[in-house]
Every structure is written in structure tokens, then in C-alpha cells.
């Protein structure tokens, strides 16, 4: 065939796989950018939640400072949950249409196809998170992070979005209908509500507290909050911030790796 092998086969295989991954990422991005409905929903809903929490419930939350300082990091995480739905649906469409058969009959490796969707998810989230962040700043969110704090927050959020996107990809592969695939967002979005995203964990009923403290979203939110708005009540600082960040990273990497592997295996097996 047409492969020009000037390097060792193993290297050539890796080069092909990376090229395929780039091709598939380009494809998913293109398709996502043409799905305006999904983009608008994924942006508008978190913006509305932001406004609601700030202006409607905000007054009821007994806090010393603006509630928006406290809630914005959690709402940014919610964006990832909304984005997950469209990622899962896009994967499901590949699986239920004829596309999966063509892709699987090509020399392309399965993970490159799913990687394409994950890359598109990252790009989509960059846009939706950017908009939500912009609105938050417009209505009074005042982050006080330095360059390192910003880098850390963006890096961790990227890792979180990628992990959620792999979860979404897995749901997309195993789901039999677009609706079932979209249901992933309920799972993903449920978590921020039972975390420290909107209220400090110690205000939750005792039976929820244990779960809220030890689920993956809480350390991510606490880290982002600690990095962006360290002055907020309840924000973790100093040494504690470092260890919380490590827990957050471990969760994201772990979830991402497990679901990436599961999605790839399911992609190869499903028929």
C-alpha cells in the first residue's frame, strides 16, 4: 500500500496514529462548530445558573462576601457537565450510523477516533467556559490570582474537562440511543450539586457530608477556588491547597485513564 516507511515500523505506527488523531480531532471540531444548537445550550444554561445563583439564591446564602466569588468556580465546572452531553451524543451518532463500520475497517486505531471527540470537547469548553467566565466578571466576579495561580487553575480545569469528556465518550460508545448518551450529563452534573460548589460542605446534612467531601468534584473546585479567589471564606490555602490539588489531579487522571481505556475497548468490541 501507500505507506512510505523510512523509519522503523514502530515509529511509523506511532506517527500514523498521531496523524490519525489529528485528523479525527479536526473532524470532530469541524462538526462541533457546525452544531450551534448544542454550543448555545452548553453556554446559555451555565450562564443562567450563574445568574440565578447570584441574584436569586445569593441573598439567602449567609456569607461575608459576594456569593459570586464563592460560586463561580463551581459553575465553571458545570459547563463541563453540559458539554459532556453533546460529546456523548456525537460519539453515539458515530456508533449507530454507518461511520463506525467504516472507521473500524480502516487501519486507524480506535482511540484516535475517540480522542478526536475529546479534543473537540476541550475546544468547545474553552469557548463556553470563556463566555461564562466573562459574564461572571461582568456581574462582579473578581479573581485575585497571580500568573501561577491562573496557570494552575486553567491546567486543572483542562484536565477535568478531558476526564469528563472521556466519561462522555464511554457513555456514547455503550449507549444505544442519543437520549441515553445525553443522560451522561445528569450523572456528571449531579456531582457539583453535592459538593462544595454552591455551599460549604459543612452546611450539608451530615449523611451527605461524607460523600461530598470524598467525591472527585470537591477537590477540583476547592483547588480552583483556592487558586483564583484565595480570600473567599472556606477557600483552602497554603499547604492544604497543595495536597487538595494533588487529590484533584489524581482524580482527574484516574477517571480519564479508566474511562479512556474502557471507551476504547468498548469501541472495538461493540457491534
Amino acid at each position: 500500500m501507500t505507506t512510505t516507511t523510512t523509519t522503523t515500523p514502530r515509529l511509523a505506527g506511532l506517527r500514523d496514529a498521531l496523524a490519525d488523531a489529528a485528523t479525527m480531532a479536526g473532524r470532530s471540531l469541524r462538526l462541533a462548530s457546525r452544531d450551534l444548537d448544542a454550543m448555545i445550550t452548553a453556554t446559555a444554561v451555565p450562564v443562567m445558573i450563574l445568574l440565578m445563583f447570584t441574584f436569586v439564591f445569593g441573598g439567602a446564602m449567609a456569607m461575608d462576601i459576594d456569593y459570586i466569588q464563592y460560586a463561580t468556580p463551581g459553575i465553571i465546572l458545570l459547563c463541563a457537565g453540559f458539554g459532556a452531553a453533546s460529546t456523548a451524543v456525537a460519539v453515539e451518532q458515530d456508533m449507530s450510523g454507518g461511520m463506525v463500520d467504516r472507521l473500524r475497517s480502516l487501519p486507524t486505531r480506535p482511540w484516535t477516533v475517540l480522542f478526536g471527540h475529546v479534543a473537540a470537547a476541550l475546544a468547545k469548553n474553552l469557548v463556553t467556559t470563556g463566555v461564562v467566565f466573562g459574564v461572571a466578571v461582568a456581574i462582579g466576579f473578581r479573581p485575585s490570582a497571580g500568573v501561577l495561580g491562573w496557570l494552575g487553575a486553567v491546567g486543572l480545569l483542562t484536565l477535568f474537562v478531558a476526564a469528563i469528556a472521556w466519561v462522555a465518550a464511554f457513555f456514547g460508545v455503550i449507549a444505544r440511543t442519543p437520549d441515553a448518551a445525553a443522560a451522561v450529563s445528569f450523572v456528571v452534573m449531579f456531582l457539583p450539586y453535592v459538593s462544595s460548589a454552591f455551599v460549604p460542605v459543612d452546611t450539608l446534612p451530615t449523611w451527605l457530608r461524607g460523600f461530598a467531601q470524598h467525591q472527585p468534584v470537591t477537590p477540583v473546585i476547592e483547588t480552583v477556588r483556592g487558586l483564583l479567589v484565595p480570600g473567599t471564606p472556606g477557600a483552602v490555602v497554603g499547604d492544604q491547597l497543595g495536597s487538595t490539588a494533588l487529590v484533584a489531579i489524581a482524580w482527574c487522571v484516574g477517571i480519564g485513564a479508566v474511562f479512556a481505556a474502557a471507551a476504547t475497548v468498548a469501541f472495538r468490541r461493540r457491534r
Partner: peptide, 15 residues
């Protein structure tokens, strides 16, 4: 060495 054009059309309609 093969290629397959299946019974279901395998195209991205938005592309």
C-alpha cells in the same frame, strides 16, 4: 488491504 462501503451510508452530513 480492504475497504468497506457498508449498507448504511458512512458520511458526516454536516461536512
Amino acid at each position: 488491504h480492504i475497504s468497506l462501503t457498508g449498507q448504511q451510508v458512512a458520511l458526516d452530513l454536516k461536512a
